[in-house]
C-alpha cells in the first residue's frame, strides 16, 4: 500500500479523541524540534534519532493501550513514550541523565518508566523481541489481562529473532501486538536494500498470525488498526501484526545530513505530514480552529521548554550515583 495523496474515507474517531491525539503529536514534534535546535546550537550532547513524519504511528498505536499495558519501543522518536504517558519532565531528566529521572538518569536515551508500562528501550535492535514475548507470556501466566505492544521498524524485521518471536507468540496465543512502522529507511539505506518484500506484514500469515496494513500518516487509522489488534489480544485470541506505512522525513540520526534522501520524495511526504493530515480534518470537521491549534503548539512549547530547563538546571550524577545500582540489594 502506498500512503501517498489518495482520497480515503475518513476513519471514524471521536472528535475529542482526534484533538487529543493531535495534541500529543504536536508535543512530540515540538520536543524533537527543540532537541534538534539544541543540537544545532551545540548545547546538548545527545544525538537525536528523530521520528519526524511518523508521529501518527506511535501516538495512534499507544492510544489503543491501557496504562497497565506493556510497551516496547525504539530509539526512533519519542511518540510511543509520550503516547504511553511518559512525561516531558521524566523524558528530559533521563536525556540529561539526572538522578530524578524514573531510571535515576541511568538510561539516558534508553528510556524506561515502569509506572506507565514502559519496560525498557534496548540499544541492540531486536534484542527486545524475546523480552516482549516474555512480558506477554508473563501476562498469560498471571492472567492479569495486560496486552504487550511491540513497536519496531521494518529494519529490525531483518534481525534473526523476528521469526522465532512470531512463532512463539502464535504458538502460545500470547496477548502480543506487533506494531511495525515501515518508514522506508533502514539507517542510511532505502528499505528495498534490506527487505526482500515491499510489505513485511504478510509474513505473519505463515505463522498463523492475523495481519493488516494501515495508513501510518493518519493517526485515526493507526489508532483504529491497533485497537482491533489490542482487542483481539485482550479477548485471548492471540497476537496480531500491523504494518504502518509511513516515512522517516529526516536523516537516520542528527549527526548525518541524509544526503541519500531525494528532495522530491521528502516534498511528496510532507504533503501527508501526519500533523497536517490531522489539522485538515480537525478544521474540516469543525473540531478545532486554527487559533486553538496555535494554542496547542504554544502549550507544547511551554511544556517542553520547562522540562528542558528543569533538567538542565539539575546537577550531574555524582560518582557514588554513577558507580552504584548494578545489583539489586547488597552484594559482597
Amino acid at each position: 500500500m502506498e500512503a501517498g495523496n489518495v482520497a480515503r474515507d475518513p476513519v471514524p474517531i471521536e472528535p475529542k479523541m482526534l484533538l487529543e491525539l493531535y495534541r500529543r503529536m504536536v508535543l512530540v514534534r515540538m520536543a524533537e524540534t527543540i532537541h534538534k535546535e539544541m543540537l544545532d546550537r551545540q548545547e546538548f550532547y545527545l544525538m537525536g534519532h528523530f521520528g519526524t513524519g511518523q508521529e501518527a504511528v506511535g501516538i495512534g498505536m499507544t492510544a489503543a493501550l491501557l496504562p497497565t499495558d506493556y510497551l516496547f519501543a525504539t530509539h526512533r522518536g519519542i511518540a510511543e513514550f509520550v503516547g504511553k504517558g511518559m512525561s516531558q519532565e521524566d523524558i528530559w531528566a533521563e536525556y540529561y541523565c539526572r538522578s530524578v529521572g524514573p531510571a535515576k538518569g541511568k538510561g539516558g536515551l534508553h528510556l524506561s518508566d515502569y509506572k506507565v508500562g514502559l519496560v525498557g528501550l534496548v540499544g541492540s535492535l531486536g534484542a527486545d523481541y524475546s523480552i516482549a514475548v516474555g512480558a506477554a507470556l508473563s501476562s498469560k501466566i498471571q492472567k492479569d489481562g495486560r496486552v504487550t505492544l511491540y513497536s519496531f521498524g521494518e529494519g529490525t524485521s531483518s534481525q534473526s529473532d523476528f521469526g522465532s518471536t512470531l512463532n512463539a507468540a502464535a504458538l502460545w496465543k500470547l496477548p502480543l501486538v506487533f506494531g511495525m512502522a515501515n518508514n522506508q529507511w533502514c539507517e542510511f539505506a532505502h528499505y528495498s536494500d534490506h527487505v526482500a518484500t515491499g510489505d513485511v506484514a504478510p509474513r505473519a500469515e505463515g505463522y498463523g498470525i492475523p495481519w493488516s496494513i494501515a495508513d501510518g500518516q493518519d493517526v485515526a487509522a493507526a489508532y483504529a488498526a491497533t485497537q482491533e489488534a489490542v482487542d483481539r489480544a485482550r479477548r485471548g485470541e492471540g497476537p496480531s501484526f500491523v504494518e504502518f506505512k509511513t516515512y522517516r522525513a529526516g536523516p537516520h540520526f542528527s549527526g548525518e545530513p541524509g544526503a541519500y534522501m531525494a528532495e522530491e520524495d521528502l516534498c511528496r511526504w510532507r504533503e501527508r505530514d501526519p500533523l497536517l493530515v490531522a489539522e485538515q480534518r480537525l478544521l474540516a470537521e469543525g473540531v478545532a480552529t486554527r487559533d486553538e491549534m496555535d494554542k496547542i503548539a504554544e502549550a507544547a512549547r511551554a511544556e517542553v521548554t520547562s522540562a528542558v530547563e528543569r533538567a538542565r538546571s539539575l546537577p550531574d550524577v555524582t560518582y557514588e550515583e554513577m558507580i552504584s545500582g548494578v545489583y539489586a540489594g547488597e552484594v559482597k
Binding site: S130, I131, A135
Partner: peptide, 22 residues
C-alpha cells in the same frame, strides 16, 4: 514451560518474565 529451540529467546523471555513480576 517447554520452549521452542530458541536459546536467545529463552534468555530474553526469562528477562521479560522477570521484569513483569515472575
Amino acid at each position: 514451560l517447554n520452549t521452542p529451540i530458541w536459546e536467545s529467546g529463552i534468555a530474553g523471555m526469562a528477562l521479560g518474565l522477570a521484569v513483569t513480576g515472575l
